[in-house]
Design a protein around this nucleic acid. Structure first.
Length: 382
RNA sequence: GGGGGCGUAGUUGAGUUGGUUACAACGUCGCCCUGUCACGGCGAAGGUCGUGGGUUCGAGUCCCAUCGCUCCCG
């Protein structure tokens, strides 16, 4: 019996090429008294090292973030999972009472692959911080996540690179299956739920096989892993579209690491419930802002005297109070406030986008909404 | 008044004994970022080498004059 409740609120039948987009209410037990109620589809801001960069818990509440991410690999290295547990687990440590999902560190094995050695047992790697040697196993990943006390614990998987041969992908896939099973042997805390991750690269038959393997295990939710790692956006969307229907309808589906606003729209259209991506936060710090009309590179000279709001259609505090000229000035001057305001807006934009999609699904007009979304972006940002 | 030093991209500077399209940093301009090592990455534009002569096959580099700035001595 799953500790996670997932109640679909919209019709998900797909007769003939109709929208598979769906809305649901997800309930997590919660570690601090009350259960967490989450509305999907949703986007989860990334807070790798125990902080959504530039955002306080109050900010996150204000933009109505539902779930945020933490990272097993990073928190293990610094400040250390045992210390975090001593300090009240991740929730109390970072002063955030909402739900937290921790990624297993599997992706870091891939993204920091320089000096990693992978074998069937686990991964030996060197810290990106001080070069010290460490070893991760599926068991240790679970123990770390247990100590962190996150609400959603991700399986420790192997993400094959792109491009990869069929043999490489198959090997990563079977390892991911074996590691998933081993992880399940490690007990978690009462409030914690587990998600499995399937792989398969861009090989449709391997995707199917991997999904079946992972689905045979008692996970509370399922994640599509190994996408948006270098393949074209079209291929990524295609794989998401092909693989989402492989997953059970009555469990949450999580497309990991995605993506751009249009990727979220297409993911939702394909039936994805959960997303996470560093894009809104990282790009905010690098001066790229997302708006209903498209991207804005706030450092561009053409905004120097622009007294208009960043996004005329946005109701966030940043768009209410500040001009593009001011936001550009802050960025160019490398003011700390720049990162903060940009991040606040970008995350607000992403979350508002998800709210709109959820509403459209519940009102049975998702396809119509999507057309408007794309039409608005055809206008030049200026 | 006498003597020395310096004038090279928007800025600060590098330019070996004279030798191809004069270099760097910062700044400017543009693009990129997909389970975060990353307030970062990539690229572009921008210079009649203070000015005028001279020597030389060839001068940012040597010589003369001149202008500007600066230091030292009277």
């Amino acid at each position: 019996m799953s500790k996670l409740k997932f109640e679909l609120q919209s019709d998900t039948r797909d007769s003939q090429g109709n929208s598979r987009a769906r809305a649901a209410k997800m309930t997590l037990p919660g570690s601090l008294g009350e259960p967490h109620e989450i509305l999907t589809p949703m986007f989860m801001p990334v807070g790798t090292v125990g902080s959504v960069k530039g955002m306080t818990p109050g900010d996150l509440k204000q933009i109505q973030a539902q779930v945020i991410l933490g990272n097993t690999y990073h928190l293990y290295l610094r400040p250390g999972h045992a210390r975090v547990e001593r300090l009240g687990e991740l929730h109390r440590f970072m002063g955030y009472s909402g739900p937290i999902l921790t990624d297993s560190g599997g992706f870091q094995v891939f993204s920091l692959a320089g000096l990693n050695k992978i074998d069937d047992e686990g991964v030996t790697f060197q810290s990106h911080i001080d070069g010290s040697s460490h070893r991760f196993t599926p068991e240790l990943s679970m123990e770390i996540q247990r100590a962190l006390g996150s609400d959603i614990v991700m399986a420790f998987d192997q993400c094959p690179p792109y491009p990869a041969t069929e043999d490489q992908v198959r090997s990563a896939m079977s390892r991911t299956f074996a590691w998933a099973k081993r992880g399940l042997n490690i007990p978690l805390k009462d409030h914690q739920t587990r998600f499995g991750i399937f792989q398969g690269g861009l090989y449709e038959h391997l995707r199917k096989e991997s999904a079946q393997q992972i689905m045979s295990l008692p996970f509370d939710g399922f994640a599509i892993g190994g996408l948006s790692i270098g393949e074209s956006p079209d291929m990524m969307q295609e794989m998401a579209r092909l693989t989402t229907p492989l997953l059970p309808k009555d469990r949450p589906r999580y497309l990991m690491g995605v993506g751009r606003p249009e990727d979220l729209v297409e993911g939702v259209r394909a039936g994805v419930d959960m997303f996470d991506c560093v894009m809104p936060t990282r790009n905010a710090r690098n001066g790229q802002l997302f708006t209903s009309r498209g991207k804005v590179n706030i450092k561009n000279a053409r905004y120097a005297d622009d007294t208009g709001p960043l996004d005329p259609d946005c109701s966030c505090e940043v768009c209410q109070k500040f001009t593009r000229a001011y936001l550009r000035h802050l960025f160019v001057s490398k003011e700390l406030l720049s990162a903060r305001l940009n991040t606040f807006h970008n995350l607000f934009y992403y979350l508002e986008l998800m709210r709109q999609m959820r509403a459209a699904i519940l009102e049975g007009r998702f396809d119509e909404w999507a057309k408007t979304f794309y039409r608005n972006r055809e206008d030049d940002v200026r």
